[in-house]
Amino acid sequence: MSEPLIEVEELTKYYGKHRGIIDLSFSVSEGEVFGYLGPNGAGKTTTIRTILDLIRPTDGKAWVFGRDAHLDGEEIRENIGYLPGELSLFDDMTGVETLKYLANIRSGVDWDFVDELGERLQADLDQDMAELSSGNKQKIGLIQAFMNRPSLLILDEPTSGLDPLMQQEFFKLIEEARKNGQTAFVSSHILPVVERLCNRVGIIREGKLVAVEEIDDLKAGVLRSLEIHFAGAPPRERFENLLGVEEVVLEENRLRCKVVGELDDLVKEAARYEVVNVISHEPNLEEIFLKYYESEGQEAMEGGPNNA
């Protein structure tokens, strides 16, 4: 492992009496894609904005490229591409004008690459920002984050507003950036996005870092809701004792259950009968958090996860 690219130590931020983040410590290594997962309002944006020196921590410190995030902010940001969570761009400027303006403030923008990004993301660069949908604005935001091939990408909810096709293109961009040796810090409240992109993931809830895990370990622990429709009702008891399968409910021809880890046993058992349809529900973040809370024991339950 090389030197950490981002290092955060006991970082705390209160807005007056309101909680921002509490006592966060973690680090991101060079070349990794680090996922930052948590529900809205958990403190993801606060963490990012502190790292960028846009806001000042109440306590604790952050380092980027081994340098003090506050004192050396200007030099640090030379090598950061940032996509804000709530992207605001100048209403009366087109995409090209916006990118030109930002390129004049930064250095090292490769215009061939900008054109390539524009094409791949199908961005409309000639319309005024005021006339663009949020998804199309998001594309301009992504281009400006990537356009000078920064060594660190900090992307706050990058997939918001993107349609599935563009999400795939975005995943490819991150993959290419990783191959280029770039590092990415990606925040999201959507588990599949983080699963798809990241090597490691930090999980934040109510301002506190609940866990930092390798993505494979996280996946192994994720509880998935599955619904399998059969041509005829299968015997329920055949599914009840399968490894990792819980909460089995059979309603006529429909089997609903929750699965932790690999789906192999369940799929093989289901294949014995005629399967009409399989529906996989997105894992609920709260359920993941609950799992970590349970493992943390009594003290952690005080926060009272409201998993309705």
């Binding site: 846009l54 200007e74 940001r77 804000p84 992207l87 605001s88 761009l89 403030i105």
Partner: peptide, 14 residues
């Protein structure tokens, strides 16, 4: 207040 300084100050400027 429109969030525009947020974008601007994330650049390498003081």
């Amino acid at each position: 207040e429109k969030g525009l300084l947020n974008v601007l100050l994330a650049n390498p400027i003081t």
